[in-house]
């Protein structure tokens, strides 16, 4: 749709030097750091690379990262669907306040996101005594890591899905209901297929952040090797031990995940151009969509 718009103007602004300047900047600031990851990872040869990523502690980190994502992404996905349904299909007071609150975790530093769970569930936290008496460990254990991950990835699915559902309107659902479909049937057969690309887009971004989160997880993890070390934390430990090649080997797996995420994201944007938009808030976008329609 941008073919006509993207045509270079005739007024002389199509300057080759501007293009070169932009490309050199991007090369230096984005491409080179990415290349360094792979070049350092393979600096000691393929054997050392394979040994580093098949190390039992590295594998334990991979397993934990997958587990954390497997719990936190579906939960945030269900939340995103519920929030989008309530916000897009109904009018109620306080809707814009709710949208601001959903975006709140994006305004919070990851370290603070970890800190709040220490204050709640740590030994001298609000529930610390209760948890200790019942021998439940949340902080410095897997549940804390999952909670912190849910916190930092909280808005991803909701903020992608809300504008998509708002744009869809509610005519399709009202038709299905008037033809005798139940609420659940309407949701599974009408709403979900309508918004599936938006949902997938949100899940993709949520998953990338969940697997790559470092700050929040670092606060609550306790860094117990083989037990509470996720992949990013394992990278940090190896790096701080001057085991640089191994650190970059594990980091290269995360970089591959990032590249796959970008590829899938571009594919989804190509299928559904309206998914591509400024990193602004769902509310503002919802407003534009409604104004345009």
């Amino acid at each position: 749709m941008n073919a006509a718009l993207r045509e270079p103007p005739r007024g002389g602004t199509g300057n080759i030097w501007l293009t070169l300047a932009a490309l050199s900047f991007l090369g230096l600031f984005l491409a080179v750091p990415l290349i360094v990851v792979f070049s350092e990872a393979l600096s000691k040869g393929a054997g050392a690379y394979l040994a580093a990523i098949t190390n039992p502690l590295a594998l334990a980190a991979v397993r934990l990262t997958l587990l954390v994502a497997a719990v936190s992404v579906p939960l945030n996905c269900i939340f995103g669907i519920a929030a989008a349904w309530a916000i897009a299909k109904f009018e109620f007071r306080g809707k814009s306040a709710l949208l601001t609150l959903i975006d709140l975790p994006f305004a919070v530093s990851p370290v603070i996101a970890g800190l709040v769970f220490i204050l709640l569930f740590g030994n001298n936290g609000w529930f610390g005594g209760f948890l200790m008496r019942h021998d439940v460990r949340i902080v410095f254990a897997v549940p804390g890591i999952i909670l912190a991950t849910i916190f930092v990835t909280f808005p991803f699915v909701a903020r992608e899905l809300i504008p998509v559902m708002q744009a869809q309107g509610k005519d399709d659902e009202e038709t299905a209901l008037s033809l005798g479909a139940t609420g659940w049937q309407t949701f599974w057969r009408v709403t979900l297929p309508n918004v599936r690309w938006g949902l997938l887009y949100g899940v993709l971004l949520c998953n990338a952040r969940a697997m790559g989160e470092f700050g929040a997880v670092s606060v609550v993890s306790g860094h117990i090797r083989g037990l509470t070390n996720t992949m990013p934390l394992h990278v940090e430990i190896l790096y701080n031990e001057y085991n640089i090649a191994a650190a970059f080997a594990v980091a290269s797996l995360l970089a591959l995940l990032a590249l796959l995420t970008l590829a899938a994201k571009s594919y989804l944007e190509w299928r559904q151009p309206e998914l591509r938009r400024a990193p602004t808030q769902a509310r503002s976008h919802g407003r534009t969509l409604r104004e345009r329609s």
């Binding site: 350092e40 790559g212 990278v235 995360l254 995420t261």
Partner: peptide, 26 residues
């Protein structure tokens, strides 16, 4: 151009710890 456009999102997608050690090494 499409490839470079997609690459702009790399800092969103790349885990921060990976960016951190890579920039430091660089």
């Amino acid at each position: 151009m499409r490839l470079i456009d997609a690459m702009v999102d790399l800092p969103f997608a790349l885990p921060t710890a990976v960016a951190g050690i890579s920039l430091t090494t660089l």
